[in-house]
Nucleic acid binder design. Structure first.
Length: 182
DNA sequence: AGATTGATCCAT
DNA sequence: TGGATCAATCTG
């Protein structure tokens, strides 16, 4: 039984259940998946090659470590939604919310590989994919999604685990090996 | 190494 | 309400 083009496309989009699991597991398993941005009739896609996990209320590197605020409330919500914020007054950062509602966690998309080359850095990823606060709290699944992640069946090789970038203030959490890259 | 940039957060 | 801070990037 052949599936329609639409069903085939839908089947590759990661469902909320993918994100509902442990944040470190989700982070590692996002490598090799494709970030896809719908702009009008066109899609931009890039293979995810670097991420960071921000894992729970005790993670001092996480925005959520000082409780829920207007900015970070999306992290406390349902998995499979985008958490986007402005850093340094200039750049946007894209995160996908993980784990069950009430447990604040997310994975930051740091770098992708497109057909025209690598895009390194969360600010550059957002600029290239035309991502801003308008997508904050948007769903990363379903037919209305404008931004989602697909499994295209590609395997990733050896995964590197390194400390997260720019979190020197995070005391005993600053050296956690929660940055994953290929 | 230094400048940029402005929303956010918390201590006054 | 003020001022330090910031999950970054660019230029020199």
């Amino acid at each position: 039984m052949a599936v329609s083009y639409r069903e085939d496309r839908m089947n590759k989009i990661l469902p909320p259940s993918f994100y509902r699991r442990k944040t470190l597991f989700v982070a590692k398993n996002l490598l090799g998946k494709y970030l896809v941005r719908k702009i009008g009739k066109k899609n931009i896609a890039g293979k995810i090659i670097e991420v960071e996990a921000y894992n729970g209320p005790k993670d001092l590197a996480s925005h959520a470590s000082r409780g829920k605020t207007k900015r970070n409330e999306v992290m406390f919500g349902d998995p499979g939604h985008w958490y986007i914020y402005l850093v340094y007054g200039m750049h946007f950062c894209l995160n996908i919310v993980t784990e069950k509602k009430g447990y604040p966690a997310a994975v930051l998309i740091r770098s992708v590989e497109t057909e025209s080359g690598e895009i390194n850095g969360p600010g550059r990823v957002c600029r290239s994919f035309k991502i801003d606060l308008g997508l904050n709290n948007a769903k990363a699944f379903g037919k209305e999604a404008e931004l989602w992640i697909e499994d295209r069946g590609e395997k990733i090789g050896k995964i590197k685990r390194t400390p997260r970038i720019g979190v020197d203030y995070a005391k005993d959490y600053k050296d956690k090996l929660w940055r994953y890259s290929r």
